[in-house]
């Protein structure tokens, strides 16, 4: 009996603390409420599914990015890696006639390998990850153009299936939910995930505590590459073709989603749930502005302001809490 009461009091829901720790979620809810009032088109089944599909690419990319940012790095190459992975998959399928499943897996492996290269260069080559992945951004995009000769290539049906529907539910949403669960599990439950926080929080302390910091960095970038590949396949699947310019600039959306979700670019902080909310914030704003017929030029302005506001509020909140 007595233990039950202690538990109850400890788990008592603290509204203030919840709000303080979930600023992005509160922002998202206010945003949705505003759009619901502003336009009848917002809260409709098709529009919500549309949001779900749109968020899937950004969020999956951003999950991979969350690992990297939590571990104290940054990955600027994810957009290019997404495009390259999808392109390799389609190129193999069309060019050498491998089966669709193989093509799909080859796409994922491509992303993983490119990510591992990022990790190796960053951990063992001692290049800052910003530079290593900036280089990879260019290399991967270039390779995409080389193998495709600058033209789109048709995807394997198995990849197109990722962009299709399973019954009434779009596959991207299913993939999104599955990868959110996997990413969250990795980050919260596994030794690897806990080590990422330690490496990002203080790499030297982690090393002196016996954590294999370099190996962890390589795995983290490998995961980011793998998630980028998945996002690239989702995107290609929706269009039934791998586009050479696909996902260009998406790395910035991914970083924005992670940061809006409360992660610190200094490393050591960040959650998958936060990143998911961050990705939703970005996509819902774009969707809402579209519904309100705001031009895409102004949309960019608004998104930029939102990123600055979200992070600014977060910094302020941390400052007051630490004082």
């Amino acid at each position: 009996m007595s233990t039950a009461t202690i538990d109850a009091s400890r788990r008592r829901f603290d509204v203030k603390r919840f709000l303080a720790n979930n600023g992005a979620l509160v922002g998202l809810l206010i945003l949705c409420l505003g759009l619901f009032i502003a336009t009848p088109d917002f809260l409709t089944g098709p529009n919500l599914l549309n949001i779900g599909i749109q968020v899937s690419t950004v969020a999956v990319l951003a999950f991979g990015m969350t690992f990297v940012i939590v571990a104290g790095g940054i990955d600027l190459s994810v957009g290019s890696v997404a495009a390259l992975s999808a392109m390799v998959s389609s190129w193999l399928y069309v060019g050498s006639g491998v089966s669709g499943w193989i093509a799909l897996i080859a796409g994922l492996v491509t992303g993983l390998l490119v990510g591992v290269v990022n990790g190796l260069v960053s951990a063992y080559g001692k290049l800052p990850s910003f530079i290593a992945t900036l280089a990879m951004l260019s290399v991967a995009r270039g390779l995409t153009l080389v193998i495709s000769d600058g033209r789109p290539i048709k995807t394997a049906p198995e990849v197109s299936f990722l962009g299709g529907n399973l019954g009434p539910i779009p596959m991207p949403i299913i993939v999104l939910v599955a990868s959110a669960i996997i990413a969250s599990f990795l980050l919260n439950r596994t030794v690897l995930g806990r080590s990422m926080y330690a490496v990002g929080g203080n790499a030297e302390a982690a090393r002196l505590s016996g954590l294999p910091v370099k190996r962890i960095v390589v795995i983290v970038f490998g995961l980011a590459g793998l998630f980028a590949a998945l996002a690239g396949l989702l995107l290609a699947g929706r269009l039934d073709s791998a586009q050479p310019q696909a996902a260009a600039g998406y790395e910035l959306d991914a970083i924005a989603a992670v940061v809006i979700g409360g992660a610190s670019l200094a490393g050591g902080l960040g959650r998958i749930s936060g990143t998911f909310v961050g990705a939703l914030v970005l996509v819902v704003i774009r969707n809402g502005l579209n519904l309100l017929n705001v031009t895409s030029f102004w949309q960019q302005v608004v998104i930029g302001v939102v990123i600055a506001l979200a992070v600014g509020i977060d910094v302020l909140r941390r400052k007051t809490r630490n004082a």
């Binding site: 080590s195 330690a198 929080g201 203080n202 002196l208």
Partner: peptide
């Protein structure tokens, strides 16, 4: 602070790093 602890992590996490694996 520089070599021993992950300052933003909890006391619990900091105590456990060497035995995590």
């Amino acid at each position: 602070k520089v070599q021993g602890l992950v300052l933003d992590a909890s006391v619990n996490d900091n105590l456990g790093y060497a035995t995590l694996q």
